[in-house]
């Protein structure tokens, strides 16, 4: 297990390096520098600025300088937010995004699996069909459509919840978290239903039933764990989806999270900020995927990486 984990962890390095390289060179080939102004700056000032941000060095030198910076966890100064470093911006935005994302994924996991199990136990009934119909709807409606519609209904017309903003209070969290969780709930419900149905047809469940165990014990003790395995392996993509979904959600609900900074930075051509966020989120997604893999291996007795076949 430990050996396998280590190998997987080392395997992340080429991906990270590729991410960093692509991001770096994409931005360097971009037409126009960060200090292009309407009025041309005097050459001395331009030279000074270039020297300050090391833009006067060769591209390769700059690349390795940036690489070194990132390894020491320093993403440099923001080009647009004066007096802010990218690190400070990330430190400010990330807790908000983390709160929304973490709650949404936990919510999605519990609600999704419960709905999926409910549908599987009543396979081909009206309950099953309507639940799966709703799940398909949840997959098909993009969250940037659901969010404004929920705002319109629950905030503007009914006035129950705030339409946007963020004050660390529960009412301001409800809509963003629910909208972010909905597609994941739908996917997880479909996956759980499918795998639960498959598991319920397997031999060991027939054995458990033949022993005379009650249906609820059969499900909780015997069927649940294998049925949840595909859900666990879906958590990786789900997390990645939520992180990119949060970009839209934060914009719609005007939440001061990392996603808002990212979009703002993208629209303002704040290159260092955009790169910082891309790399930060890239690392986050890779590490979380790695943890999900470990969890999967730990829960699934069929996978024992260290055994010799």
């Amino acid at each position: 297990m430990a050996k396998h984990s280590l190998r997987r962890l080392l395997g992340l390095i080429p991906t990270l390096l590729l991410l960093l390289t692509v991001a770096f060179f994409l931005i360097r080939v971009a037409p126009g520098g960060p200090f292009d102004a309407e009025k041309a700056l005097p050459p001395e000032i331009q030279a000074n600025l270039n020297a300050k941000y090391h833009l006067d060095e060769s591209l390769l030198q700059q690349y390795f300088r940036y690489l070194g910076q990132v390894v020491s966890l320093d993403f440099g100064p923001s080009y647009q937010y004066k007096d802010w470093t990218v690190n400070e911006l990330i430190a400010q935005g990330f807790p908000v995004s983390l709160t929304v994302g973490l709650t949404a994924i936990v919510l999605a996991f519990f609600v999704g699996t419960m709905l999926g199990i409910a549908a599987a136990l009543r396979q081909n009934s009206t309950v099953d069909y309507s639940l799966m119909g709703f799940a398909m709807l949840g997959i098909s409606i993009p969250n940037f459509v659901i969010a404004p519609i929920l705002i319109l209904l629950l905030a503007v017309y009914a006035g129950w919840l705030p339409a946007g903003g963020w004050d660390w209070g529960v009412p301001s969290m409800v809509l963003p978290i629910v909208t972010l969780a909905l597609p994941a709930i739908a996917y997880i419900a479909r996956i759980t239903r499918g795998s639960m149905i498959e598991v319920l047809h397997s031999n060991f469940i027939r054995t458990a039933r033949a022993k005379g165990l009650s249906e609820s014990i059969v499900i909780r003790r015997h069927a649940l764990r294998p049925a949840l395995l595909p859900v666990i392996s879906y958590l990786g993509p789900a997390i990645a989806g939520m992180i990119s979904g949060s970009v839209v959600i934060e914009r719609i609900f005007s939440i001061p999270g990392l996603g808002s900074y990212f979009v703002q930075g993208a629209l303002n051509r704040d290159y260092t900020l955009v790169m910082g966020v891309v790399i930060f989120y890239g690392v986050l997604i890779l590490v979380l995927n790695f943890l999900v893999d470990l969890l999967y291996a730990w829960l699934n007795p069929k996978i024992r990486y260290d055994q010799k076949r």
Binding site: L12, P14, T15, L18, L19, V22, A23, L26, I27, V29, A30, A240, I243, S244, V247, F262, V263, A266, L267, R269, V274, M275, V277, V278, Y281, G282, I285, L286, N289
Partner: peptide, 17 residues
């Protein structure tokens, strides 16, 4: 390796650049 990249973000980067 490519699969593990956060694509939505790279795509946004691409559009910006």
């Amino acid at each position: 390796i490519i699969y593990a990249l956060p694509f939505m973000f790279l795509m946004i980067l691409l559009m910006v650049v």
